[in-house]
Design a protein around this nucleic acid. Sequence first.
DNA 1: TCACTAACTGAAAACGTTTTTCAATTAGCA
DNA 2: TGCTAATTGAAAAACGTTTTCAGTTAGTGA
Lengths: 155, 155
Amino acid sequence: MRLTTDKLADILREHNYKVTPQRRVVVDVLVHSNEHMTPSTIYEKARQKHPRVGLVTVYRTLDILSGLGLICELHTLDNNHSYLMRETDKPHHHLICSECGKVIDFTDCGLGALEKRLSLETGFEIEEHLLEFHGLCCHCQTITAKREKNEKTAT
Amino acid sequence: MRLTTDKLADILREHNYKVTPQRRVVVDVLVHSNEHMTPSTIYEKARQKHPRVGLVTVYRTLDILSGLGLICELHTLDNNHSYLMRETDKPHHHLICSECGKVIDFTDCGLGALEKRLSLETGFEIEEHLLEFHGLCCHCQTITAKREKNEKTAT
DNA sequence: TCACTAACTGAAAACGTTTTTCAATTAGCA
DNA sequence: TGCTAATTGAAAAACGTTTTCAGTTAGTGA
C-alpha cells in the first residue's frame, strides 16, 4: 500500500519535524513517481510545483525521509545517488531498468545460505549485503528492439 | 596467482600502453596492497614512492587497468569508488571488511536461480547484478570487542 | 646511438554533486 | 496572538572527478 502525501506529513509531525510547504512538495514529487530520481531531478520537479524550494532543502528532506526509512536510496552503477518511495516495510532489494529507471522491489533474495557459508569459510561477521539487479524492463526491451531495427535499415 | 608489477607492465605494453615510471608506481601500490583503496589513497601512497605523480595520472591509470580487467572497482556503501588488484579471472563478488578494508573474493553467488525467477515474473531482461557483502573480518572483530570492553570499564 | 612522434605528463581550471554557513523566515505551540 | 526553536534559501566551501593544454618522454625505426 502506497502512502499519501498527507500520511507522510503526519509521520513527519509524529517525529517532531515541521511540515513546511517545501517539504510537502518534495514528498509529493516522490509520492507521484514510479521511477528513482536523483536529488537534482527531484529539485527540478519540485520547483515546477512550488518555485520557492531550494536544492539544499531537497537534500535535507531526503535525509530525513531516508533516516525514517520512508524512502530507498539506490546505489546505481553510475554512482549517482537516487531515491524512491519505499513500497514495503520488509527488507527488500531492487530490480532496476537501466533505460527508464523503473524499479521493482523483491524480497526473498535467498542469500541467507550463501551468507552463512561465507561467514563460516572466512570468519567474517557479515552485517549487511548490497544487491541490485540491472536490466531492461519489458517496455524498454521492445523500444530498444525497434530502434536497433531502424538503425539497421538506415545503414 | 598474484601478478607482479613487471608482469603487469608487460601486459600494458602488449596493449600498446607505454610503461612510464608513474604508471609503474601506481601499479606497484595496487600490487602491494591487500585492501581496497580510493584514488586519493592510491595517490598518496604513490607519492611516497615517487613524488612526481599527479592525481590525474592515478585516475588515468586506474581507467586503463580497469578497462583491461586487471583491477576491480568496488561500489562501496558510502558511494566512494575504490579499487584493488583482481585476483582471479572468473566473475566474482566481494566480501569487504568495513573496518580495515580487507577484501575476500568469492565466486558462485548462486543468484542464477533468483535471476531466472525474477526475469520470468517481471519480464525484465537482466543484464547484470551488483552484489557485495559487508561485515567485520576475524581480526577486526577481536579489536572491536576489546575496544568495547575497555569503553565499558572506562565508564 | 640518435632522432622522431604519438603517447603521456602535471598544473590549473572546470565540472557536478553534496555540505556548511548564516541571517531571515515560519510552523506549531502556549 | 506572540514566542521560539526549527527551517529556509543563497552563497560559499568542499568534495571527487574530468578536461584542457603546453611541455615531456617511451618506444620505435633508421
